[in-house]
Write a protein that binds this DNA or RNA. Structure first.
Lengths: 124, 124
DNA sequence: ACAAGTACTTACCCTTTAGTATGTATTATG
DNA sequence: CATAATACATACTAAAGGGTAAGTACTTGT
């Protein structure tokens, strides 16, 4: 498990900024490159670990499990393990994670629009 | 200017994933901790460099200017400098940046709801 | 006996991002 | 002549995140 240190400026930012800036709160939970991508792929329903891996081939197993754990810790998704061999583990969105879907959906919408209008580069 | 290297797995991910996963496209542009926070503070209108700094006290000047430059490069905001002394520089959202506001707004909404329901931690 | 499959773990290293501290140009002001 | 103010730049360091490679446990299939 990767240790989390609590002494950077970002950490200090948490203390006061959460009341000041709601976006800061979001960045604590889904900041970073992979987390929104993982959440996006779980938006269509629960997936096994290996299914998530296949959905995002570029992610390494170490980083995937690391991000999944952090998302669990932040109560954005739920891990369910069946005690069988070979292991059967699924990940699904928690209620909190489900409530994030408007954010992910807004991202997807923006991305699709931008990629279209990427032709007209010198807007404004 | 911070150089950008193009050889990580994340970079490879860009090649194919942009067509597969729209969220990846978004993460290229606003991934990281500070960018959405900066965009949030510019959503209420153009601000001078020093105003942005005051709005986000925890960010260092180096990181702020670095993120502002990257956001410019990605055409999310526009820098306007008046050739006066002392300098007068404002930053504002581009049209592309404006179109991102639904994402930022969705984040803010989620954050506010979550902080309220943070009391009931063991949901589901 | 051995390979395969699942869901990981561990060790090590490299890149990116962030933080600290100091410096710069220009002009107005005391 | 020194100081202040703005919007940076630069050098160095530290922390976080990400990448590579290999290993583990357990059982089923060959």
């Amino acid at each position: 498990m990767t240790a989390v240190k609590e002494n950077s400026t970002i950490q200090e930012n948490k203390q006061y900024a959460l009341e000041q800036c709601p976006v800061t709160y979001v960045m604590e939970k889904i900041g970073g490159y992979w987390k929104p991508i993982i959440l996006y792929h779980l938006s269509s329903g629960a997936k096994r670990y290996s299914e998530v891996k296949r959905a995002i081939p570029a992610i390494t197993e170490k980083v995937l499990i690391q991000q999944l754990k952090q998302l669990q810790t932040d109560n954005l998704l739920i891990r369910e393990a069946k005690p069988v061999v070979p292991p059967h583990v699924t990940y699904k969105l928690s209620q909190s994670g489900e409530r994030l879907m408007p954010v992910i959906a807004a991202m997807a919408t923006w991305a699709i629009n931008e990629q279209e209008s990427d032709l007209s580069k010198f807007e404004e």
